[in-house]
């Protein structure tokens, strides 16, 4: 059985978990077994709806202590659950929480692990999982040599598949260790889609010359319904908040569309965005290295091109 861990934050199921279920369901089909989900704590969402993404059953460890994340406690509970249920593969989203617990679970299960997977395993000979390495600059195919396997999948690498199934929900009784971590405050940016979950991102670099010029970028983002990001020099100069920094040392994101405005495309920046499905580069320097990594390029002055693009998008939406 393929068991998929459902990540929650503040009693809401994370979007990355839906993708993990779709991936787990496809793998279960490939292996001729069932895909079942594991939920720790309680959520406001309708749990049976997880069936839409491909889970036939949801096992819920119904203990409200688990609504606060603690890597040690969660890993213990997941490992005990996986043993009790006889899971042969355990799937995680490779998001903040998944990264914190999947390797610990693999240790407790004596299972080999591949983190950051980007495709379904090849299971005709052995069990080989492809993952991104060198910050998205290459792929490695890694064979897991243990009977039980753990995989965490990169966000937005497989896609969410929505059907019309409904999952049965069952209580699972697993001992929950006492947490010795006390969460004292949570500071979330209100009303914005987290960058790592955004499907459309508009990003600005030094080419915009100063924080006072961000209006044209924000207008474009608003017209598209996109989240906003920036390059390292921009966040280092405090033109934009640090949580918007994407790149090698900032956030690594994989949206469907990444529009880079006035960003030259240094290799460290590309490391944070090279898994984007489509990249649009707007830069007045035709020699900017970013054009080599782009799908679409506009060589021109951002202060003219960006408002024109915003107008074109609004026009196309108005006509749709």
């Amino acid at each position: 059985m393929v068991l998929i861990y459902i990540d929650q934050d503040d009693q809401e199921i994370k979007k990355a978990s839906y993708e993990a279920i779709s991936y787990g369901a496809a793998l279960a089909k490939q292996l001729g077994t069932s895909a079942e989900a594991l939920l720790l704590g309680t959520v406001k969402d309708n749990i049976a709806d997880l069936g839409k993404y491909g889970a036939s059953k949801v096992h819920q460890v119904n203990n409200i202590a688990l609504n606060s994340f603690d890597a040690r406690v969660n890993a213990n509970v997941i490992a005990e659950a996986a043993k009790a249920l006889g899971a042969s593969v355990v799937i995680f989203a490779h998001n903040v929480n998944g990264k914190a617990i999947a390797p610990a679970v693999s240790v407790k299960l004596g299972a080999g692990i591949v983190t950051g997977a980007c495709a379904l395993p090849k299971t005709d000979v052995g069990f080989v999982v492809t993952k991104t390495v060198f910050s998205g600059k290459a792929f490695a195919s890694i064979q897991i040599d243990t009977p039980v396997k753990v995989i965490s999948i990169n966000q937005n690498s497989f896609g969410i598949e929505v059907g019309d199934g409904s999952a049965t929900v069952a209580n699972l009784d697993v001992a929950v260790p006492t947490s010795s971590i006390k969460i004292t405050s949570v500071d979330k940016i209100q009303g914005e889609v987290p960058l790592t979950e955004a499907s459309l991102v508009v990003s600005g670099g030094r080419g915009l010359k100063g924080p006072e010029n961000w209006g044209i970028l924000l207008d474009l983002a608003k017209a598209l319904g996109a989240s906003t990001a920036c390059s390292r020099p921009v966040s280092d100069s405090d033109w934009r908040p640090h949580h918007e920094h994407v790149g090698q040392t900032g956030l690594q994101i994989a949206p469907n569309l990444y529009i880079a405005i006035g960003i030259s495309g240094a290799i460290q920046h590309l490391a944070g965005v090279n898994r984007s499905k489509t990249i649009v580069v707007i830069n007045k320097d035709p020699e900017a290295p970013f054009f080599k990594a782009a799908d679409y390029g506009v060589v021109g002055d951002a202060f003219e091109v960006v408002p024109a693009l915003t107008a074109a998008i609004l026009k196309s939406k108005g006509g749709a």
């Binding site: 490695a140 890694i142 990594a293 799908d295 679409y296 390029g297």
Partner: peptide, 19 residues
């Protein structure tokens, strides 16, 4: 528990389409 079978480079971008 794991062994690397091989590495691959991503397919080269077909080239930027300038607009």
């Amino acid at each position: 528990t794991t062994s690397i079978k091989n590495f691959d480079l991503p397919p080269a971008k077909s080239g930027v389409k300038l607009v």
